[in-house]
C-alpha cells in the first residue's frame, strides 16, 4: 500500500486466502443433491403459480377459512397472495441456490485506474473549450451578449406564467366562513336546528351553519365552518366579559378547526373540560375560552358569538371575528 500518511511500518498483506472448494465441487453425490434441490425449488414456484390460478378462477371471494395465529381469513385473497408469493420467492431461491452451489465461484481481480484524465487530455480539453468559446466572440459582441441575457431572462417567465390558472387567488377566502349574523346552527350530521333548551349541561354537539333547502355544502366550506357547541354551567367559565357575552346560558361555541394545522378538534374530555386535537395533541381549555394549555397550537380556537332567535333556536349573533384554522402570512390578528 502506497498511501499511508503516517510513517509507521505496517504489517505485510498476506494476500487473498486460498480458495476452498465446495462440497459440490468435490463430491459428485453432493453435486447431484444440489441439482435436485434446485429442481425442487423451481417446482415449488410452479405450485405457487398454480395455486394463484386456482384461487383466481375457482375460489369464491366470500369463503373464509381458519388459520392458526391469523384467525379467519378470506380464502380467495389468501390463495392469490400466497400463490403469488410462492411463485416469485421460490423462483428466486432456485436461482440463488443454483448460483451458490453449482456455478463456478472463483473470485476474480479487476484493476482500478485513477479517474483523473491525463494532463495532455486535460490541456487539450481546455484548449478545445477555449477555442470554441473564442469562436463565439461574446467578449467582442456586446450587443449580442446583452440581448441574449435579456431574452433568456424573459424566456424564463412564460413557463411560470403558464401555471397561473392552477387556481384562484386567495383574496379574503381564508378570512371568511359561511357564518353570518342570524345563521342558525344545525346538527352535523342531520341538519336539524338546535333548541338551546334541548342541550343538557355537559353535552357536546357538532354543528354547521344552516343552508338553504336543496343546496349542497362545498367541501371547502366544511373545511372552515364546523363549530362545536358545549354546554357548561355558567359559573364554570373563567372568561373575559367580552368572551362571556358571546356565550348563551352556559353554551359556548368554538370553531372545530384546529388553530394549529386545521385538523378537526374532535375529542372532548368531560371531567377536565378539555378539547384535544388528535393530530398533534394540542389541548384547549373550554372553561378559559379554549386557551391552549398543551401542544404546538399557538392560539385559542376562535369563539363564535351565539344567541337564540325568536323560536329559541341557536343562531350566530355575528360572524367569526377572526380567521379560523391554521395561520397564514396575511393573517392580521392575534
Amino acid at each position: 500500500m502506497s498511501a499511508v500518511s503516517n510513517e509507521i511500518e505496517i504489517i505485510d498483506d498476506p494476500g487473498a486466502p486460498a480458495h476452498v472448494p465446495r462440497a459440490a465441487d468435490l463430491n459428485p453425490r453432493s453435486e447431484k443433491r444440489a441439482e435436485q434441490q434446485v429442481a425442487i425449488l423451481f417446482g415449488l414456484s410452479g405450485v405457487g403459480s398454480l395455486l394463484l390460478i386456482y384461487s383466481y378462477v375457482f375460489v369464491a371471494d366470500d369463503i373464509f377459512i381458519f388459520i392458526p395465529i391469523m384467525g379467519n381469513q378470506n380464502a380467495h385473497q389468501l390463495g392469490l397472495g400466497i400463490g403469488m408469493a410462492m411463485s416469485l420467492f421460490f423462483l428466486g431461491m432456485a436461482a440463488v441456490h443454483w448460483a451458490k452451489t453449482l456455478m463456478p465461484e472463483t473470485e476474480i481481480v479487476n484493476h482500478r485506474h485513477e479517474f483523473r484524465s491525463s494532463d495532455e487530455d486535460r490541456a487539450d480539453f481546455v484548449k478545445t473549450v477555449k477555442d470554441g468559446v473564442a469562436g463565439v466572440q461574446l467578449g467582442r459582441r456586446k450587443l449580442i451578449k446583452r440581448s441574449l441575457a435579456a431574452s433568456l431572462g424573459l424566456f424564463a417567465l412564460p413557463p411560470v406564467l403558464l401555471l397561473r390558472d392552477l387556481g384562484p387567488l386567495p383574496k379574503k377566502q381564508l378570512e371568511m366562513t359561511s357564518w353570518k349574523a342570524g345563521t342558525r346552527l344545525v346538527t352535523d350530521p342531520g341538519n336539524r336546528p338546535i333548541l338551546a333548551s334541548d342541550l343538557e349541561v355537559g353535552s357536546v354537539v357538532q354543528t354547521l351553519p344552516a343552508i338553504a333547502e336543496g343546496t349542497e355544502r362545498l367541501l371547502s366550506d366544511i373545511a372552515k365552518d364546523p363549530v362545536l357547541l358545549i354546554r357548561l354551567r355558567p359559573e364554570d367559565f373563567q372568561l373575559t366579559p367580552e368572551k362571556f357575552a358571546m356565550t348563551h346560558e352556559g353554551i359556548i361555541a368554538f370553531s372545530k378547526i384546529c388553530s394549529h394545522m386545521g385538523c378537526a378538534v374532535a375529542l372532548y374530555e368531560q371531567q377536565t373540560k378539555h378539547l384535544l386535537c388528535p393530530c398533534h395533541q394540542s389541548t384547549f381549555d373550554v372553561t378559559r375560552g379554549a386557551k391552549v394549555i398543551f401542544g404546538p397550537a399557538a392560539r385559542p380556537l376562535p369563539q363564535l358569538d351565539i344567541t337564540v332567535d325568536a323560536e329559541g333556536y341557536l343562531v350566530a349573533r355575528a360572524p367569526f371575528n377572526e380567521p379560523v384554522g391554521p395561520s397564514f402570512w396575511e393573517r392580521n390578528s392575534q
Partner: peptide
Amino acid sequence: VYMAKAGGFFFIVFGITAFLGAV
C-alpha cells in the same frame, strides 16, 4: 454468478413483498 444471484434476489424480494401483501 452475480447475474444469477442478483436476478434471483429480485424474485426473492418480490416474493417476500407479495407474502406481506397476502398476510
